[in-house]
Amino acid sequence: MPRLAPSSPLNGFRQEFDRLEITEITDLALVSIASPQGREAELASAVSGAYGIALPPVGSSVEADAGEPRFLGLQPGQCFALFERQDEGPVDIIARKLSDAGYYTDQSDSWAVLRVSGTRCREALERICPLDLHPQTFVTGAVARTVMEHLGVIIFRDGEDSFLLLSARSSAPSFLHAVVTSAKNIQ
């Protein structure tokens, strides 16, 4: 039998609107890292040893010295590592660096990832996102989990006019519909 071929939740969706672009990001690996209670220091030192940084507090993100991974602080005691997908299993890559200092769970296939970018991206997101995305309130690098059109979404600002949106894989078509409708409704 041939090896199994992967497929992305939104088949590599991409569409341009006036000063606005919606693109599916398909090449990301995502690993959640939980810090064992009472051994937070061990994880912290493993992270700083391996990546040269401290894990971010909830709501913000930080890039490893080498540029990858980017760690997103999502909840107390837990963050996501975000990096480009490679052949090796995502958890193995993290475990190789951090050994057993944390608890790791592969989340790479759990999410559909959209990048919404362009100077009108905030205007479009205003229609579905309850958070204040003003650049002084939700700064570049900020991250939050919230709800849009009845769907849980992780929103990460990766640029002045660029956001990554992560939503559950199974409902990805509904989520895409919500984002595309926002883009259409402001045109």
Binding site: L74, Q75, V147, G152
Partner: peptide, 8 residues
């Protein structure tokens, strides 16, 4: 419970 948030 911050279900659609940080799960706190």
């Amino acid at each position: 419970f911050h279900e659609q948030g940080d799960r706190s």
